[in-house]
Design a protein around this nucleic acid. Sequence first.
DNA 1: TTTTGTTTAAAACGTATGTTTGAAACGTAT
DNA 2: ATACGTTTCAAACATACGTTTTAAACAAAA
Lengths: 210, 210
Amino acid sequence: MSHNDTVIKILDAAEQLFAEKGFAETSLRSITAKAGVNLAAVNYHFGSKKSLIQAVFVRFLGPFYKLVEASLDAHEKQNPGSILSPEDILKFVARGMASVTNGDRGRLAIFMRLLGLAYNQGQGHLRKFLKTEYTSLYIRVMDLIAKATPELNPVERYWRFHFMLGAAAFTLSSMEHLRAIVEYEFETSCTEEEVVGYLLPFLAAGIRAS
Amino acid sequence: MSHNDTVIKILDAAEQLFAEKGFAETSLRSITAKAGVNLAAVNYHFGSKKSLIQAVFVRFLGPFYKLVEASLDAHEKQNPGSILSPEDILKFVARGMASVTNGDRGRLAIFMRLLGLAYNQGQGHLRKFLKTEYTSLYIRVMDLIAKATPELNPVERYWRFHFMLGAAAFTLSSMEHLRAIVEYEFETSCTEEEVVGYLLPFLAAGIRAS
DNA sequence: TTTTGTTTAAAACGTATGTTTGAAACGTAT
DNA sequence: ATACGTTTCAAACATACGTTTTAAACAAAA
């Protein structure tokens, strides 16, 4: 179908440009130019720029959400009532991300970039959208963390969760840039997997800090 | 002087609006309206919107930079050759921030917001600006961390430094929003100092994770 | 082939933005 | 008091944006 073709081309271009420049700084004209489609196609297929932004999110978060939920379900079924360690919880989430972004290197950065933008930027319509659509996964992960760190008081646990989120979103979204510095400064290359390999122990140590 | 008055009113308004909405989403008209000055004043006093953004940064980072440098100098003079722990290093930085943002509650969030935006957003002119103007402080703090964590390999230390930066920038910049959730969800209020009190141990544990 | 609904195309619309202009108001030193 | 450099002001300018419109191209069914 030519319909789907145009829609996908728009989503691909938008996803990339949003991550590069942010939402407000990315014009529909640059998106349609990159996608090689007509300007009016965005408003025709998505209705508005706002809806396009949300559509880009859905394409990312939807599969991620389902993947993590499914793998957690599977683990719970095989090990009923088991308590996961912080490291294990993070691995489940990281695996979900890896699956969603698989194939395209750099798509992890785009994912994180969009997440960070949605969290910080915006007049709230994106945040509200995230909140209403994906709270159940948030609650589930939070419950797992709570079981893994029973000695922690809930408020501090809440904040540590967001410290983790911030460390991940901030660094992984600027990964390309930060990796370039590593290459220049340390004369070593650095794969995405290595960075995640550095990140998870950092996060796990942080959340179980005494 | 009426000159300085207008300049300061513009900087105050811009700082706040930039932090609330981001750079591109904040118009000069909204800034001048909030400041109660004429629209043309921005271009008259600063030359352009870009220069205004940089001026807002300078007003923040300049004093912060000098404060941290000075307090580190003082400590080095009193305890020559001493090795600071990660916690101590973070305290020095945190104290510098507290001093710069003192008086205005919420100015810490603005500070972090701007830092995050400069790091993630922008076509590079801000990042280049930060890089050229404030690398010496970065190098100094990085050296202190290196001495505090000699067992860490330099590349992983580099990444952990940015994990810390990310955790701080992300959470503290959204502090207002996150604190509101805490109040709603846990029926407890949460001061800025408490959040920083939660943050520093998290960061310290992360950077010395084995 | 004709018809009907869907998708693309080019152009235009209205609005909001950053910037510039030229005159008025201001403060200050002579 | 006058003259001069500085600052303010209202208005206009050019441009870029999101969106709408109208017609053409297309695909599939009758």
